[in-house]
Design a protein around this nucleic acid. Structure first.
Length: 461
RNA sequence: GGCGCGGUGGCAGAGUGGUUAUGCAGCGGACUGCAACUCCGUGUACGCCGGUUCGAUUCCGACCCGCGCCUCCA
């Protein structure tokens, strides 16, 4: 299996530190607002990666953190007139709902920053005593970037360039402009924790270093996250962790690609981001997941109406192959050439787009068997399709449920069934004008009818 | 300015030194009361210019264009 490592900028043959086991950490979200599409991309990407690694027989310990204390959380809670903990409680709950709807399995562990203040303080303490951090005049504690010769190895930045750059926040209290906060002194009235350096709270980067090493050890296999975390967040994590533990931090760094919206960068500052729940009002959740999985996790994807509609059409085709076929029992279906082709694609840096092409080949095979009247073979192939789809977190619904799922305000299933019966009566009486009128009427309301020997089934457009 | 990624057919999106990606859409045929679904067939491709090679979309170099990070953001 080969995985692209951001640290070396190339695909490498993957070898776990401990045979058969994989320790993975992914930066989760800061819970001050609902999850947006960018979060969905990272969530789904690492969900597919975890599912595939497990499919390959690895015991995966997947840790994804929650940042539940930071400036944005305090600011938002203040605006809302609620406590920071009430805000984060609500947002964590919402995140779990969104995840579940996208078919994202929960991580093995989900540590929160505020539950690990002791570990964070212990790590800062180590950094100060080893000369990698210092307490500044303003009460903050900073990491001394110049004390770590490897600083910049992940993002390939040179310290002199960063220091010379105009965008670095120059603060009097810092020794070097590129130094970053490990501990922030509390302002009056702010929520805070006691520490050797006075009341305050952790900086953003330190929690990930403290929690990842706490949960997974000084050195672990994979660390992932969104594309914009590469610098400074992950660069800083490396500096903190390697200085504190004296060991290499992470073997393989993985970063998902960015999401664009109608060919424009999606970002907080542009205000053009969509939350997952907004998107799920317009499209079925599995269509959104299919859209995300149908391109490689590192590529940039463009969210647009056209692209989502196409994803829906394609997923519909796959479910059509499964409709009316009861898959054979998984245990009765030996590995096929499709399984091998699927794994060949996924072994190459999780090429889910290539893997989906295999799904289409299997669907085509089901349809051919059915056309040839070979139900037994169709059941076998259907089992393969469900098995491989499951590795991507797709095609696990009952096909009828997928076709019938509708939003509020759409025609009810009962009404549709009644109309189908009326049309069947008309057809029996050879009153095709009436039959077509009913079909057209339903079509106008977004319901498409499919006739077959067994009767008429329906789906929503 | 510094660092990095990419330009594939109408669209989406893989991949490869010589042989079909795949999907959506289109066209022709079969099936159907007519459709839908499905099946069969079919067209359109690798930004530009050089180089290496028997042969390059695939390797190398220059150029053009797009994008990302360098600032809170996944």
């Amino acid at each position: 299996m080969r995985i692209y490592n951001t640290l070396t900028r190339q695909k490498e043959t993957f070898k776990p530190i401990e045979p058969g086991k994989i320790r993975m950490y992914v930066c989760g979200m800061t819970v001050y607002d609902y999850c947006h599409l960018g979060h969905a991309r990272v969530l789904v990407a690492f969900d597919v990666i975890t599912r595939y690694l497990r499919h390959r027989g690895y015991d995966v310990h997947y840790v994804r953190n929650i940042t539940d204390i930071d400036d944005k959380i305090l600011q938002r809670a203040d605006e809302n007139g609620e406590s920071y903990s009430e805000l984060t409680r609500r947002m964590i709950q919402a995140m779990h709902q969104d995840e579940a709807r996208l078919g994202v399995l929960p991580p093995s562990e989900e540590p929160c920053a505020t539950s690990h203040i002791d570990d964070i303080i212990a790590m800062i303490h180590k950094l100060i005593s080893s000369g990698h951090a210092y307490e500044a005049d303003n009460g903050d504690v900073y990491f001394a970037v110049e004390s770590f010769p490897d600083y910049g190895k992940l993002s390939r930045k040179k310290l002199e360039d960063l220091v010379a750059g105009a965008r670095v926040d120059v603060q009097e209290a810092k020794r070097s402009p590129a130094d970053f906060a490990l501990w922030k002194a509390a302002k009056p009235g702010e929520v805070s924790w006691d520490s050797p350096w006075g009341e305050g709270r952790p900086g953003w980067h330190i929690e990930c270093s403290a929690m990842s090493t706490k949960c997974l050890g000084d050195t672990f296999d994979i660390h992932g996250g969104g594309p914009d975390l590469l610098f400074p967040h992950h660069e800083n994590e490396i500096a903190q962790s390697e200085c504190a533990t004296g060991h290499a931090f992470v073997h393989t760094w993985m970063h998902a690609g960015a999401i664009r919206v109608n060919k424009e960068k999606m970002s907080k500052s542009l205000g053009n981001f969509f939350t997952i729940r907004e998107i799920l009002e317009k499209y079925p959740s599995e269509v959104v997941r299919y859209f995300l999985v149908s391109s490689h996790y590192r590529s940039q994807v463009d969210y647009s109406e056209d692209n989502l509609v196409e994803a829906g059409q394609t997923l519909t085709k796959l479910y059509h192959a499964l409709r009316g076929v009861i898959p054979a029992k998984a245990g009765d279906v030996p590995e096929t050439e499709h399984d091998r082709a699927f794994e060949e694609a996924m072994d190459d840096d999780f090429n889910s787009a290539g893997a989906i092409a295999v799904l289409h080949a299997v669907a085509n095979e089901i349809n051919q068997h059915r056309r040839n009247g070979d139900e037994a073979q169709a059941k076998q192939s259907a089992a393969v399709l469900v098995r491989l789809g499951g590795v991507l977190g797709l095609l696990q619904q009952d096909p009828e449920a997928f076709f019938h799922a509708g939003a509020d305000g759409e025609l009810s299933a009962e009404y549709i069934e009644t109309m189908i019966q009326a049309r069947a009566d008309a057809r029996k009486a050879k009153d095709f004008a009436e039959a077509d009128r009913i079909r057209d009427e339903l079509a106008e309301q977004g319901v498409i009818l499919d006739d077959s020997r067994e009767g008429t089934s329906w789906r929503r457009a």
